[in-house]
Structure formats: C-alpha cells, structure tokens
Design a protein around this nucleic acid. Structure first.
Ligand code: ZN
Ligand code: ZN
Ligand code: ZN
Ligand code: ZN
Lengths: 157, 157
DNA sequence: ACAAATCTGTTATAATGTTACACTCTCACT
DNA sequence: AGTGAGAGTGTAACATTATAACAGATTTGT
C-alpha cells in the first residue's frame, strides 16, 4: 500500500488500524483513561467522522451516560495528542488514520456518504505559506479540507 | 501593491476596498437587497471576521432588528456569490478582499487579534489534490486556513 | 394584470460548545 | 504508608451557532 493512499477509500483490514492506534497511544505514555479509550474506540469503528454529540449519545460505561464536557474533554485530549483530528468543515472528529506517522494531514470529505479520507501531506498551500512568512506570521496550525463527491457516490446517482 | 500581498496587514485606503466590493456586487447583476447590503457593509468595515450573531446584533434598519435567519440568509447569499467568505475555523465571516478577482482563497488567521488576511492562491495543497484525483474524487470546494500569531501581536507580548 | 420565483418576517427548536465548581483519583515524594 | 500537587471526572447550568417550517410580501418576466 503506497504511503499516500487514503486508507478510507480502500478495502483494508480495519482491525489493524485499530490495533495500530491503540498501540501507538500506549507507546507515547499517554493516559488512556476510560472515557478517552471509549471515545477513541468509537472513532476507530471506521473512517467516518462523528459529531461530538453523536459520540456523546453512544458513550456509556456500566450504564452511566456522561455529560457533554466528558465527550469534549476526551476529544480535546485525543486531538491534542494526534490520535484524532477535528474536521472544521463538519464540526466533527475522525480517528487519525496514521497515528504512528502523522506530521500534517489534509482531508478529503465526501458530501454524500460523509466518508473522510486522511492524506498525509505537507502543511497548507505553498503560496499561502509563502505570503504568511513574508509578513512575519508565525504559523502554528493548518486546516486543509477538500469537499466533493467520492467516486463511489458519483456512480450511485 | 503586489497582487499576493494580504491587504489586511497593510495600511491602505480601506474606503477603496468598500467601493470596489459594492461596485463589483452591482456589476454582477446581483440583487443587493436591504439586509444583504447592510450585512456586507458591516463586514466591509475592516478586514476582521465577524460571527453571525455579532452581525445580527448590529443589524438594524429603521429601528427594526431582524431574527437569526435574516442574518444567515444574507451571509449565505454573500458567500455564495463570492462577496464574503466563511472562516470554518472561527465559525465566522469576512468580506472578500478581492471580489473582482477571487478564484480561490486561503486565510491567515491571528489568534490574538483575530485579524483575517485573505490570500489569493491556488486551491488546496498539491499533494492532497493529487491524491484526490487519483481516487476519482470530484473536488468542489476547499478550505485553506492557517492559524498563528501575526507579527504585530508577536511584538506586543 | 398575472403567475412564478425570490425574498422577508416570525416562531420555535436543534446542534454545537463552554463555564464553573466540587469531588476523586494518580503519582511522585517523603 | 502518608501526603500534597496535579490531572481527571461528575454535574448543572448556560452560551453560541445554526436551521426548520410556514405565512406573507416583493420583485420579475410575460
Ligand atoms: Zn482503517
Ligand atoms: Zn461518497
Ligand atoms: Zn481594506
Ligand atoms: Zn495579531
């Protein structure tokens, strides 16, 4: 599998994605507490994105359903440590597809089926970065999202 | 002034920006109705972004204060016709800085002062687009945003 | 003048995200 | 083991952002 292929669009052994992510989380010495674990697991079910409240509604531990801050705290943690990404265009979250090797990622978003494919690529647009550098701007984070219709959905019309 | 300089960071005759935008709107044969006009005017006050409710709270015509849908409708219209842009990272809106020549734009966002500089540049990241094309993805729109600290704010610490 | 299309007014509600504060747990250090 | 600091959780309330639905008004083309 080529490095830059977006996993989301490929048939693949997804349980492998899950194992990699969990192993990666442990290797970093992160504290994967109960809720963080559960949220990560929900996100790792597939490569779709989920809203915070969709996650919240499915969160549950021994019959206990947590409140919004619990979901947001877990999501913030996962995003901060690179185990998940926030999709700004959708106000939603996805598990990182390559938590072991994710420097900078862009996202391909299908409007129809909501699949979100992560692509490891250099940060931002070269022209944009050049202009930013020219005006002494200190760039800290980058949003790169492309919305459209995936080839599956094009054919299903 | 070089084409790719971000206007927002430069001292400039901003009333000129406003005239250009309004002229541009009229030239396109768009119906700039009362609310659309007023919203555009608010956005054109400077190159800062404004949330929909910030706009809503300042909207007023002959003592009449409209409801949320009015603001959102005007904003949707302006965005759709390229007179404004939505900043996904901020859930906010800016007037287009070059409505006469805006094919595709990226944004430089200062966390401190909230200034939003628009940069005309090619759509998205080349690697991201290449991968999208490879998998037969039909790209329709692109989000390019870089967040950080502008040089002014770096010096003001 | 008329019909179709577009725009507006209005009410209500949905969806997303945060503050604040008390309490509990974990971990490093005596 | 005790203990204190920091990190994590529980909970209630609230703030912000966005949309649905539908009736009425205005504009546009014929
Ligand atoms: Zn997978
Ligand atoms: Zn699709
Ligand atoms: Zn200006
Ligand atoms: Zn600044």
């Amino acid at each position: 599998m080529e490095k830059s292929e977006p996993l989301a669009f490929l048939d693949h052994d997804h349980s492998q994605c899950r194992r990699t992510a969990l192993k990666c989380a442990n290797n970093q010495g992160l504290r994967l507490t109960k809720w963080r674990q559960l949220v990560l697991d929900l996100l790792l079910e597939d490569h779709r994105s989920m809203g915070a409240y969709e996650i919240l509604n499915r969160l549950e531990c021994n019959g206990v359903k947590p409140q919004p801050p619990t979901a947001y705290r877990a999501l913030d943690f996962l995003v901060e440590h690179g185990l998940a990404h926030r999709i700004e265009k959708l106000n939603a979250y996805v598990a990182c597809a390559r938590p072991d090797a994710c420097q900078s990622a862009g996202f391909i978003i299908c409007k129809e089926c909501n699949i979100v494919a992560e692509v490891e690529c250099s940060p931002s647009n070269p022209e944009l970065l050049r202009v930013a550098a020219n005006v002494g701007f200190d760039a800290e984070s980058t949003v790169m999202e492309v919305e459209g219709i995936c080839s599956n959905c094009q054919n299903n019309d």
